[in-house]
Design a protein around this nucleic acid. Sequence first.
DNA 1: TTGTACGCGTTATCAG
DNA 2: CTGATAACGCGTACAA
Lengths: 380, 380
Amino acid sequence: MTDTNQTDAVPGRAITTPRSGKASATIYDIAALAGVNPSTVSRALSKPGRVSAKTQQKILDAAEELNYQVNIFARALPTGRTQTVGLIVSDITNPAFFDIIRGAETAAASRDYTLMLAESTESAEHEMTAAKRMLATVDGLILASPRLANEEIQELAAKKPIVLINRRVDGVASIVADTETGVAEAVRHLAAQGHTSISYVAGPERSWMSARRWESIKARCDWHGMKLSQVASGMPTVEGGRRAAAVVKDGEATAVFCYNDLMAIGLMRELQGAGVSIPEQLSIMGFDNIFGSDFTTPPLSTIKSPLHELGVTALSRLLEFIVPGDQAGVVESSAGTAAGAGTTAPGAVGQAGAEAGGAAVAALSTELVLRGSTGAARPA
Amino acid sequence: MTDTNQTDAVPGRAITTPRSGKASATIYDIAALAGVNPSTVSRALSKPGRVSAKTQQKILDAAEELNYQVNIFARALPTGRTQTVGLIVSDITNPAFFDIIRGAETAAASRDYTLMLAESTESAEHEMTAAKRMLATVDGLILASPRLANEEIQELAAKKPIVLINRRVDGVASIVADTETGVAEAVRHLAAQGHTSISYVAGPERSWMSARRWESIKARCDWHGMKLSQVASGMPTVEGGRRAAAVVKDGEATAVFCYNDLMAIGLMRELQGAGVSIPEQLSIMGFDNIFGSDFTTPPLSTIKSPLHELGVTALSRLLEFIVPGDQAGVVESSAGTAAGAGTTAPGAVGQAGAEAGGAAVAALSTELVLRGSTGAARPA
DNA sequence: TTGTACGCGTTATCAG
DNA sequence: CTGATAACGCGTACAA
C-alpha cells in the first residue's frame, strides 16, 4: 500500500474534533455529590488540614469519582498563579541549550510546574516579543543567554520574577557557570604544550558570556605570559565558525579558543577543508562540550559547562521566588545559609548576595575535557 | 575580581521580587477613560467591526494609552481558549526533535500562539502525565513520536484537538513523513554497490515509526531480491546503537540500516572501536539527517527527514482545528482543496482524508543523503 | 469547622 | 450600535 498523504488517518472515519469535550466537573459538582458547600471543597483541595478529616475524605472521594481537575484559569484569576514558568533560549537548535532545557523541564515537572518554551533566534527584538507574551501567562521567567539590554531585562524583572542564565544584570537573579577553573586548566595545558600566542574567536557582540570568557582567557594568558588576541566575532553557530577560518589561518597564533563548540567545529572543518591539519598546525579549543563535539575528527577539546545543572538550578531559584515557602527540589543542600531573598520584603535592601554555599559552586564550575583537537605548538 | 558565586548579582542591591507588579489596566479602566461601557470595550477589542468607527477609535486610543493587555485567564474562563498549544516529544536531547520543535515554535509564534513543551523521556507513563497536565491548559496538543497506546491517544483526542507526528492512530489527525522515497533510493544504492544481505537495527518496540521504516526497507529489499533481517532493537540513542554492535558484528549482513542517526552513530563508533572499518567491512545507513551526522568519520549516509516541515505542518494543522476560520500560515499553497475538516460538524463523517495536494506531499518526503558510511559490499 | 457572599477580567445574552 | 447583567470556576474574607 502506498502511503503518501500526510494529513489524515484511516479513510472512512472522520477526524474527531471535540467541540465541547463534556465540561469537566467543577467544585460545585463535587460539592453537590459530597453534600457540602463549594467553598469547603475549595479549602479541602487547596489547603488540606483546614477541614475535618471525614469531610475531607468525602470530598476527596467525590473528586476522584468525578475525576475532577482544577481549572487553572479560574484559579489564576483570583490568585494570579498559573503553575507555569517560561524559558527563553536564543537558539533552540544549539545543542548547548537542550541540556539546559531538559534540566529546567525536568525540575519543573517534578515540582508540578509546566514549562513554556520560546526562542529569540539571536534577536533582541524577538526576545522581547516572546518575553512579553510569556509574562502574561507565566509565574516567572528564565532567560538563557539573553541578548536583551540590561535595562530591558530590568524592566521585565520589575513585573515578574526572572532568573538569568549566563548573564549578569544589576538587581536581577542569575545563575552563571564559573568559567575560571576550566579556562585555567585549558590555558595551563596549552602553555605546557609550548603555545605562546593564542587567539579567541568571539561570539555575538551582545553576548555577555562571550566577553566573560574572553576576560578569563585574557587573565590566564597574562599570568602565563602568553600573547592573546581576538581575531573575530560572529554568530555562535557552525557557520559562524567557518566564517572565521580565513582570519584565523592568516594569524600567527598556534592555538585558538572559540566562544563555543559550534563555532569550534565550524572553524575546524573549514580549516581542514583548506588543508590545515588539526592539531599539528593549529590547536582548537571549544566551550560547552555539546552533543557531537566528540564525533569530529579529531574530537574536540573543550571546556565543559554544567548545562543541565544550570537549567535545574535556574528553575529552583525561580521557584524560590515564586513559592518562597518550600526548599524542596534543590539537589545539593548548601551549607547553612537558610534565608534567601524569598523572605525579604518587596523593596527591602538585603545582602542576599553573600550566600555562596560551597557545594553549589562546585557543581556549577567548568572543567577541561581534553581530546584530540589540541596538541603541541607548531614550530615557529 | 574572583567570580565564583552563581546566584546573585551585584552586592548591595537586593534582587527585586515584584510582589504585585502594578495591576495592569482592565477593560473597565479603558471604558472609563473612553467614556463607554466595558462591554463595548470588549467588543471593540475582540471583534472589530461590530462597533462604530469613532467609538472604536476612542477605545483603541485609550487602550494604547493605558497600554492595555488582555488577561488571557479572564478570557479563557468564558471561552475556553488560551492561545496556547502543547508539544510533547519523547526526548528533548535528540537533535531530531529540535528541528521539529523549532518548526512548531516558529509557526506558533507567527500566529500569536505560545508553545508549551514537555518530554516523555521515552516513557508512556510520563507522556500521559505530561499530556494530562497540558490538556488542562492548552487549546490543542502535538504528540511527536508518541509512545502511548492507540487507545490512550484516542482518549486524549476525545478531549482536545490533537495532531500526531510520525504516528498513525485511527481517527486522529497525523502528519507523517513519507519514508518510501528515501528508502527506495537507499536500497537501490546499496544494491548497486553489490550488497545482498542487509540488516535493520530497530528502535523502541513502541515506536510506530520504527516498524514503518522496517516495512519500507523490507518491501524494497524484496523487490531487489535482497535478504533482510532485523538484528536488534533498543533505545533510539547513541548508547542504544552501541549496544547493538556485538550482534551486528556477528551477523552476515554487509550493510545495516539503523532506526535513526543516533543509533547509527553509536553503532559506528562502537564497531570502529572494535576494529571494523566503515564502510569497507560494513556499510551503515542512518535516518533523519540530524545535526552532527556529518561530523563523524566517515560522515554518515542517511535518509533525511523533513523535520522542520513536520513541525510547521503539524502546528498549522492543529490550528485549523482550533481556529477553523483562517487558512493563513500554510506556507505552500496546496492545489485547490479548500474545504478542510474544519467545516464539518462535530460528529460528522466526512472523507477529509482524500485531500493530498501535490506540493504538500512533496515537502514531506524523505531523501537519500549519501556520505561516507556506505560503500561497496565486502567480498563474501 | 463550615457556609455566605463577593471579586477576579472577560465574554455573551439580552434589552434598549 | 450600545448598555446592563449574568455567567465562567475558584479563592477568601467574613460571618455563623
